[in-house]
């Protein structure tokens, strides 16, 4: 059955048409938030609503810039998300390499236990973590948030990275071993370059997750200097009203950096995902 030229063209139009529609649905809410962020308070509550601001205004941004959303909140978000994602990837590589390349009693069981930690509801641990933090005088510090995030994201990170290491043929390492390389050297010189897309994927997924993390932060953080951006956003929403243009301007500041990070890393990420970074 050979399809004719015309059929192909129709196929192509349908395919592209549907995809364009999906893309529009995907970006519309964010684009509208961007548009709202440039409206005035008055225009935000105009009936009927406008798609594009009638009078462009930076009032929302002015208020955000005056507030502590950028400094310290967004800075905290940056420190916590970057710090925890990097540590997760480093620890994850070591652990995943052990799981992937060594036979030892309990290997499978330990993997299952760690994977099972993904099933723990987030709120479960928070009371204990709060007490632990206060005992070690670590509450409201970036370090403690990073430590919590690392433990929280590590199971998923190990899982992703193990899939990437599993995909590397073992023969490549064997020659290095014969040359006398230890496991750390093998990881450094063979695994890291070959598993890079997988590691980037793990990093990006953890980074996006912890950049946006809300539940842990809102319970754990009591201090204005330690709050992260998603929690700090609540500063613009008090009891009975939300200043939507300010809120949306704040949201733009939160979305932009992580969107740029995604854009920079997207090739490696897509490549790894398409090669099956997340496996059954």
């Amino acid at each position: 059955m050979v399809r004719t030229q015309q059929q192909r063209r129709i196929d192509s139009i349908i395919v592209n048409g549907l995809l364009i529609m999906i893309c529009l649905i995907s970006i519309f809410p964010v684009a509208y938030a961007l548009s709202t962020s440039f409206k005035t308070q008055r225009e935000v509550i105009s009936k009927p609503p406008y798609l594009i601001p009638q009078n462009w205004s930076t009032d929302g941004y002015d208020q955000v810039l005056k507030s502590s959303l950028i400094r310290p909140h967004l800075l905290n978000t940056f420190i916590n998300a970057t710090g925890s994602s990097i540590i997760i990837v480093v620890l994850g590589v070591l652990a995943a390499y052990a799981f992937s390349r060594y036979k030892f009693p309990g290997n499978k069981l330990l993997q299952l236990v760690i994977l099972g930690m993904i099933m723990i509801p987030t709120l479960t641990n928070l009371i204990a973590l709060y007490r632990l933090g206060s005992q070690f005088d670590l509450l409201n510090t970036n370090i403690y948030m990073i430590l919590i995030y690392v433990a929280n994201g590590l199971p998923f990170g190990i899982w992703i990275i193990k899939a990437a290491i599993d995909a590397i043929p073992i023969e490549i390492e064997e020659s290095a071993r014969i040359d006398g390389c230890g496991p750390l050297q093998v990881i450094r010189y063979i695994i890291l370059p070959l598993a890079l897309p997988g590691l980037v994927t793990a990093f990006l997924m953890e980074f996006v997750f912890f950049w946006n993390e809300f539940l842990i932060a809102v319970v754990m953080l009591d201090n204005n200097n330690a709050k992260t951006a998603t929690v700090g956003l609540l500063n613009f929403q008090n009891s009975y009203q939300t200043a939507y243009h300010v809120w949306m301007a704040g949201s733009v500041f939160i979305i932009a950096p992580v969107l740029i990070t995604f854009f920079v890393l997207r090739r490696q990420f897509f490549r790894a995902m398409l090669q099956g970074a997340v496996k059954g």
Binding site: I127, Y130, R131, G133, S134, Q135, L139, N140, V218, V219, D222, N223, N224, L234, N235, Q237, N238, S239
Partner: peptide, 22 residues
């Protein structure tokens, strides 16, 4: 002054006292 969201302030105060927070 530390701002706490209106729907969280009572819960947060209780947790801080019960669990020895700041």
């Amino acid at each position: 002054n530390v701002f706490q969201p209106y729907d969280q302030i009572n819960s947060k105060l209780n947790l801080a006292v019960q669990a020895g927070g700041d």
